[in-house]
Amino acid sequence: MTSLYLILAVILFSIGLIGFLIRRNALVVFMCVELMLNACNLLFVAFSNHHGILDGQMAAFFVMVVAAAEVVIGLSIIVMITRTRRSTSVDAGTVLKG
């Protein structure tokens, strides 16, 4: 059973990674990051179940909390960039480079 979860997690993570690297829309990139995080969460829970130890489930909660905090900040940045640049492309941020 566990191996099926692992395969699903790898598929989810790969989709997230590829999306993160090739998409330009900031919102989609953001969703891909969340996808990778969820893939990790899935792994945590699957292994936790497999070994019968609760540590992995706890880690999953931590990841969720961090992800929630990150979404708040990330989305607000995206909103600000969208307002000023009239674009949701991640490349719109290049003008900020030092």
Partner: peptide, 16 residues
């Protein structure tokens, strides 16, 4: 400093 081109994609790739 030329490495710092400002493209989030480049940074993401480097990180990966």
């Amino acid at each position: 400093r030329l490495i710092q081109n400002g493209y989030v994609r480049t940074y993401g790739l480097t990180m990966v």
